[in-house]
Design a protein around this nucleic acid. Sequence first.
RNA 1: UCCGGAAUAGCUCAACGGUAGAGCAGGUGGCUGUUAACCACUUGGUUGGGGGUUCGAAUCCCUCUUCCGGAGCCA
Length: 431
Amino acid sequence: MKYILIAEIAEHLEEEIVLKGWVRNIRHSGKLLFIILRDGTGDVQCVAFQPELGEEKFDQAKHLSLESSVIITGKVKPHPRLEGQFEVAVSDLSIIQIAEDYPIGKKEHGADFLLSHRHLWIRSSKQWAILRIRHTVYYAICDFLHQNHFIRFDSPILTPNACEGTTTLFELQYFDEGKAYLSQSGQLYLETGIMSLGRVYDFGPVFRAERSKTRKHLTEFWMMDAEAAFIEHDENMQLQEELIRYVIRIVLKERDLELTILERDKEALKAADAPFGRMSHYDAVEYLRSKGSEITHQNDLGAIDEVLLTENSPVPIFVDRWPKEIKAFYMKRDPENPDLVLGSDLIAPEGFGEIIGGSQREDDYDLLLQRMINENMPIEDYRWFLDLRKYGTVPHSGFGIGLERLVCWISGVHHIRETIPFPRMIYRIYP
RNA sequence: UCCGGAAUAGCUCAACGGUAGAGCAGGUGGCUGUUAACCACUUGGUUGGGGGUUCGAAUCCCUCUUCCGGAGCCA
């Protein structure tokens, strides 16, 4: 008898097969018994009929609890009521383990309880769907970058300095070498990579010890940083747009069931696969003020501003050419206005907010050094970074995507904590 | 860090100064097509900790703890 995955069940219609998995739900009605079996690749209803399975096995099956692990043998049939679906007529059943009382019930639970049981919560169908979309977003990003000649270049997680001096770092003692820090971004290391490989990206966990407490923040999250030589500001935004639209198309194509489980508005997602909006920070501020925001030309966009900006836009919007005071030291000044930098944020629609930050980088040694001195950065620690501007400097640009934020927007999930297997937040590190 | 809210059965909640209760989960039984199945019966409580007011506190007051929502910072 052939052991198959539920994902492959359509290929085995009218065949006797073996499934191995867990009991998602069980109901019985006299001599009939329905088991919703899940095996990680999908769910299928298995139907046992007492006269066919035998009294002893049927009685055992009746006492299966939620999440018990079982091996089911049976014949694949079309579902009598649900078009295009299948069910399994059970001919044999063996129990691996009867699960103890499963803490996560069929009715609703609170956030605290679910987060404390995250190791079990991930089995629930919505969580299953989100994690599968996360996987697809991850590999679609890598696939797009590979097609565009980007080489994976893993930047270190243990670093001697802050990449962007402003935000808070997790600190640890590194043997006898003094303090080390968990990386907030691999970007500065990526800039070294392009001088060897032309186009590079990294993808890994980064850490922010900010005491942020919102549905958009994690202290440990996965970031993809891409960096490319000879790509300038406008091409940089173009590349980001193509990447995001590619990811949307792949998710719509390969994760339709998961989007349905999550009740994601697929039409809204489809509508985002169209040319993105572009707006300078100056124009964005003017627009927001006309809508009643109190933002000024020296401010970053607040949470309400991000919602206001995109509320009538089906597509994400780039906001670029920011005042240099509110952006990082490494961003290149705007040749048309020395008070601005060639940085861009990509703001996702549907009230979601920022998903990408990118910029053309300062490639002139003297201007970069001056900027670092102005920010009181420890120049000696960044000798290696400044060296890049001494030995064959070139115009170059890059951007960083927060994986969980992208997954959150694409899957239409309310809180970022559901988009990573084990979220790390200011007041939570278990499990 | 700041502002707001919450904590009662395993879970989700009710009771708002006078005998702690429901639904779900668990248990037992019933039902040949169920879809968070249904029906009947049933187990289950130091009302987050400490202190106070009161004849009497889950309920009012103080305090601590934990969590949730939002802001700022950012991806």
